[in-house]
């Protein structure tokens, strides 16, 4: 009997807000699903859409981006750029057949440890319901014998 599907979610957290909020969730011993792997960046503005695409291409089932609330970016405006890129990226991903729930942008400030918990739990459940992400172009799929 195969193991039940456990989503693998890659998260890009900004150092000053979301990463600290996740630390706070830790010091407060809040509990949440173990499916997320965090990549620490200085600012959500550093999130290059290529990172998100690479994560999916390598087998992530979902990608979460965490940054400071609009107006509160430690570097003033990085999160606005992240928001714009996210908008275009989401549209692109939708056209590529990737469901909206797999890519998520959340504004989480340093004191919102509980939000980290609830966002992660929520996203894990939503992605679990969607099932594994299989746009990995496996070699055998491509070479599949064609029967027109």
């Amino acid at each position: 009997m195969p193991d039940p599907f456990e989503p693998r979610i890659v998260a890009f957290f900004c150092n000053w807000c979301t990463y600290l909020a996740a630390d706070l969730a830790g010091t407060s011993r809040l509990k949440y699903a173990p499916n997320v792997r965090v990549v620490r960046l200085m600012c959500s503005g550093r999130v290059d859409p290529q990172f998100v695409l690479n994560a999916f291409a390598r087998g992530a089932d979902g990608v979460l981006i965490g940054g400071c609330h609009p107006g509160d970016c430690h570097y003033q405006e990085g999160n606005y750029k992240a928001l714009r890129r996210f908008h275009l990226l989401k549209r692109l991903l939708r056209e590529m057949g990737i469901e909206e729930e797999r890519i998520r942008l959340e504004w989480i400030s340093a004191s919102e440890g509980d939000k980290v918990r609830s966002v992660i739990n929520d996203m894990v459940e939503k992605v679990r319901a969607l099932g594994p992400f299989t746009a990995r172009v496996t070699e055998d799929r491509v070479l599949e014998e064609v029967t027109a």
């Binding site: 200085m42 999130v47 750029k81 890129r85």
Partner: peptide
């Protein structure tokens, strides 16, 4: 300041 916005 090293935010990386320009890099992305």
């Amino acid at each position: 300041k090293g935010c990386g916005t320009c890099v992305a």
